[in-house]
Design a protein around this nucleic acid. Structure first.
Lengths: 203, 203
DNA sequence: GTCTATACATCGATAGAC
DNA sequence: GTCTATCGATGTATAGAC
């Protein structure tokens, strides 16, 4: 048996365990809050002693970074999974609804991705790149709907952030602000039409 | 000297010291973050030993509650200090700008008032009443501008929250989203006009 | 009201044996 | 890779003297 196979198997097991650690960390975060995760509790959940976690993560912040990257990959996946739409308005509305649902279906994940509530945590360049990839996808749909000025984009991000924020903070598990996403998109697009320089010509 | 005067003086000194403790707590929070306030540090800032703080606050959460109430009083004061406006649109735009400026001029205060980042902290009924008083003032200006349906109010709070949130999170100290407040209000009011049931008749 | 002293808990991280 | 043991720090809160 060539040694690299055993090595591969070992690495595979390592990655698998690392993955379950991250999963359990999310569970703890949902139960107690992000800041309340303790490495002792986490180790107990995966049948390890607390110091053994350092075989998988260099520090607690490295664990948060892995969670941050995973969350952003999920968001990117949700955005790229959206069907192509002829109508850019419909496409945009769909995107907004997706983002708000993504935010509300896991408020703790929303917190980690968008509110940076962990003191001292800064995403690594690798993790940040995933977040950037998502913004590219969103930016493309926005541009197709006629938003191109930086101010247009800023206004859009504010609307989406506001809907998500209110939904998560004031009606968790409900849809009080989710229901407003289409109306908000219509409102936004109507505003863009008042600055018509960049409206794409109809196909 | 009647005893009640000495008692009054003592209570006065007590309240004064309590007030400076709260001020120093804000300074620490701005320096290290809300969650990072330690009673040891705080006591040192006001020339006390840590246990002596318990002569002024029953617990750390009681301190946060006092800060929460103070912040809401400031917000209420800022809102009620606004001049009366004939034009409800202008009045609303002014209110929005005030709220966003209030949020951005002290991100930590914004965090405590609107994002509840302190685990276990729930405002006392007294503190919460101050927050409600502010919402009443804001609601009056909103109604004057034609928003009366619950969905109208929800959409408005989302817009204001989004602008504040983005400003605080992505351009602290700047005005990238503050500058959008008038445009956002125009956008919002234009949307209201598409549901014209509740537009107030012009005087 | 303020102090010293301390209880008591929890935390992240490291050392070193196996 | 996992363990035991422990370090060093920090945190809130209380007891009791003055």
């Amino acid at each position: 048996m060539p040694p690299e196979i055993a090595t591969d198997r070992r690495r595979e097991r390592h990655e698998a365990k690392r993955s379950t650690i991250i999963d359990e960390a999310w569970k703890l975060a949902r139960r107690d809050g992000l800041g309340a995760i303790s490495l002792r509790d986490l180790a107990a959940q995966v049948d390890l002693r607390q110091p053994s976690l350092y075989a998988y993560f260099d520090s607690k912040l490295a664990l948060f970074d892995a969670m941050f990257a995973q969350g952003n990959r999920q968001l990117l996946a949700a955005a790229t999974a959206l069907p192509e739409r002829e109508d850019p308005v419909e496409a945009l509305a769909e995107l907004v609804e997706t983002i708000i649902r993504f935010s509300t279906e896991d408020p703790v994940r929303y917190q980690l991705l968008f509110q940076r509530p962990v003191p001292g945590f800064e995403p690594s360049p690798e993790s940040y790149a995933v977040a950037v990839a998502f913004y590219d996808v969103a930016g493309a749909r926005l541009a197709a709907a006629g938003a191109s000025e930086p101010e247009d984009l800023d206004l859009f991000t504010a609307i989406v952030a506001g809907l998500s924020d209110q939904q998560v903070a004031n009606d968790p598990g409900g849809d009080r602000w989710v229901r407003l996403s289409r109306r908000a998109v219509r409102m936004y697009l109507a505003e863009l039409e008042r600055h018509p320089e960049n409206i794409p010509s109809p196909s």
